[in-house]
Design a protein around this nucleic acid. Sequence first.
DNA 1: CCTCCGACCGAACGATTGTTCGGACTGCGC
DNA 2: GCGCAGTCCGAACAATCGTTCGGTCGGAGG
Lengths: 197, 197
Amino acid sequence: MAIEHRYAGILEAARDVFARRGFHQASIREIARTADLSLAGLYHYVRGKDELLFLVLDNALDTLLGALDQSRRTARTPEMKLLALIQTHLDFGFHHAAELKIINRDYDLLPEPRRAEIAAKRGEYLQQGLAVLRELDPNGRSGDELLSATNLLLGMLNGIATRPFLRSREDARTLAPKVGALFLYGFLEPAEAHHDS
Amino acid sequence: MAIEHRYAGILEAARDVFARRGFHQASIREIARTADLSLAGLYHYVRGKDELLFLVLDNALDTLLGALDQSRRTARTPEMKLLALIQTHLDFGFHHAAELKIINRDYDLLPEPRRAEIAAKRGEYLQQGLAVLRELDPNGRSGDELLSATNLLLGMLNGIATRPFLRSREDARTLAPKVGALFLYGFLEPAEAHHDS
DNA sequence: CCTCCGACCGAACGATTGTTCGGACTGCGC
DNA sequence: GCGCAGTCCGAACAATCGTTCGGTCGGAGG
């Protein structure tokens, strides 16, 4: 139990330092210091920096997928599923901006056995988005077109979530419907033309 | 003239290495080697690593702004201006993937006197997009909403342009109308509902 | 011919990096 | 008491980093 606590503290420290400095700027010494450990003491628990990156990425993707799963559970209509995805993604981006950055940018420099695991979870997330859009698609679009649209949507969300805009839970809640409406009905559609509930 | 050629080669080398490795992982030694110069020889032309990053960013943003300016000149209607912006951005992303990567990823770790210059050019690009959307807006949206929409559009474009998708001039030409239609009319709109010329 | 200057380089500087090694301290079984 | 295993650390390792210094070389000006 004590060692579990130590381990959890190390992960916290790694996440915080990675978040503050970014992966490449974060030094193992600073992570150790943040975790109240000596440099060599940290190496007692962890094989190396790459494993630290893997653990942080794995954790981040798990919480993202978990949040998506939970928020989608209450959604009934396809539109609301889309809204749930958008809000979850924006919320994650606002509260874990650095992790999202690392996911999108630094995951591909993981050593190979580990990278596949992370890539799989990324693929799972993409599949979730694609499923939502497929359910939403009015006239049968091809799989490639749906994949394109999914990438567009996720790119849009990443672009917004990463941008140093306004970031708080409030912002995610108010921004998500606007983003959803724009994605569904387009920029030209007047805001009053559609309504819910 | 010879020194100009040297200088251009150095910028090319810096761009490639920055894009491949990321700023902090890129070593000046590798840049020098790529530019067929010794380490100290490179320092004869350039004050340091930060200046290298600034020069690459400045160059990239100038070509992007230049391309946008030129492509928008032939556009008459607001819709065509949007299409021109989209196609220019995608084209730039496909042909100068390295520069776009650096712009989106490394600009914020420039030292302060120089960062403001780059931020200004980025802001100028944003303003161009915002102007297009303002002209396009059917019912009066507030400035903040237009700015939000602009950020959404640019984020979407970055997401697509950065994604290792399919990248060639053909792709930019065929992809741009689809992206434009999706942004203007939304995901739910069937593809046949609108047509041009 | 001498001098000066810009182009360029080999070698080193100090700092920092990820990682490892040998050991010191503790608590537990015996 | 002894020994063993786990926890943790000080100190060092080699490598690499950005940067600088002292210099060589060739050509242009006088």
